[in-house]
Design a protein around this nucleic acid. Structure first.
Lengths: 245, 245
DNA sequence: ATTATAAACTGATTCAGATCAACTTTTTGT
DNA sequence: ACAAAAAGTTGATCTGAATCAGTTTATAAT
């Protein structure tokens, strides 16, 4: 019986294992060997595709699992008591999301698909248990959280100091870098989020974001066609962002 | 010989052990039993007092240790390429600092004493190793990082959405809560940081912070005497902060 | 296809907080 | 104790982005 199940697993999911996932260099599976990866595989459940707008988790619900994005993109956001929404991040394939729920035991933010998205789901307790035997995995979890903290700190710097041009330029350059790291074009990409979402994330209004895009296009730095962005003058954009991509 | 050393340890440091530290309910040692705590004790080195302005660690240097504050207070800040400083946090006794260096292997920010301050220093590799055998310690480290992420996200919300009154009110209320958690008065406390540092942290100018303090005092919400703050009308302050302390 | 609805853009006006400048108080060093 | 430097406060003015309002373009629904 056990044998049966395992055969089934193999046949169904040959392309659904960490070792075959083309994201393992970005994801938790980085630097794990085959036997370690198969242990990780055993505690991962692969979700079916979610449509735009669907929630991967909801602010306030019990913290049980973390998620690793396979395809698509999501935003995380918190809703304040007065009901206004603050986007805290955008995430792409390979990103591990949800670790910020550990300390309170509840999800501090909602995770929503920006487009058709698939994600792997991992029960945190199992992941933590597995991390005892797999130092590389343990380190990877800590690295992910450490990086999250640094990213948020970079955002603080952006919001505390920078004007609208600098914010938008930095935003585009960071996206560009993240797409590049995933093997996509760094100079031509599609924004999965709306202008409103960009504005919210950057602490600006939609109007301002729109104006900055228009101005950057007029100056020949970028080409904008609705959500399609092309970076034409990387250097100029870097200068606008004060080289702090 | 071994015996000798251990005797010495006991005699010198009876009050210098986690189990005798009045902060262990806030610090890593939370919920560890005596034998677990003594293991933690063995890898902790207690630093001598640092004076105001001294650096606990410097941005860019190799990441080796994390710190647990015993007394005093510190700020963490990053210095950008152009040389301007962004304060990313203020920390008080019991806080564990420096975990954000894990992912890059270098310290992403500098940690500076705001007053006379003592801190325990723990080599991260040893802490990580110890966490394998002490699930509660492992969990505590993850909780600390998770909470850090949430704190930064709260700051994002503050900087992206709130006006100067809301920022300063929220700042004071959060400080009040943290002092309360440490057994100090929640309604009367001394700010260890300058107006400049508050302004920098909150994404405002010194002038604006000063004006907000003055206005709050005129309205009878707080009493300000240089760095001494007294919260007179908690409710009014909460309302100013939109109840998001 | 066609309408309804939402998202995005553009212009005019307003305003909160930055900037500039002067002064007062506190802290530091001799 | 004193001078010098730093920190903090207050007022006047300016400005970048918010707000308000209207139009255009894209997306969704029938």
């Amino acid at each position: 019986m056990n044998h049966n199940i395992s055969l089934q697993n193999v046949s169904i999911s040959s392309s659904m294992q960490c070792c075959n996932c083309n994201l393992n260099s970005l994801c938790m599976a980085v630097s794990l060997d085959l036997s370690e990866m198969s242990k990780l595989d055993r505690i991962i459940s692969r979700g079916k595709p979610m449509r735009k707008g669907q929630l991967l988790s909801t602010q306030g619900e019990n913290f049980i699992s973390v998620f690793a994005l396979k395809t698509g993109s999501v935003k995380t956001y918190t809703t304040s008591a007065e009901g206004d929404e603050q986007i805290t991040g955008f995430y792409f394939p390979g990103d591990l999301i949800g670790l910020n729920g550990i300390h309170s035991g509840t999800c501090p933010d909602s995770i929503q698909a920006l487009e058709t998205t698939t994600a792997c789901k991992i029960e945190f307790e199992q992941l933590d248990q597995l991390s005892v035997d797999l130092p590389k995995l343990r380190r990877q979890i800590l690295k992910t959280m450490s990086k999250d903290i640094c990213n948020e700190q970079n955002m603080l710097q952006l919001l505390a100091n920078k004007n609208s041009d600098e914010r938008v330029a930095t935003f585009l350059l960071r996206l560009s870098n993240r797409f590049k790291a995933r093997g996509f074009s760094e100079s031509r990409f599609r924004l999965p989020m709306s202008r409103n979402e960009i504005a919210n994330y950057l602490g600006l209004t939609v109007e301002t974001v729109s104006r900055v895009f228009t101005r950057m296009q007029k100056n020949g730095f970028i080409l904008v066609n609705n959500k399609e962005i092309q970076i034409v003058e990387l250097k100029a954009l870097l200068k606008l962002a004060n080289n702090t991509a």
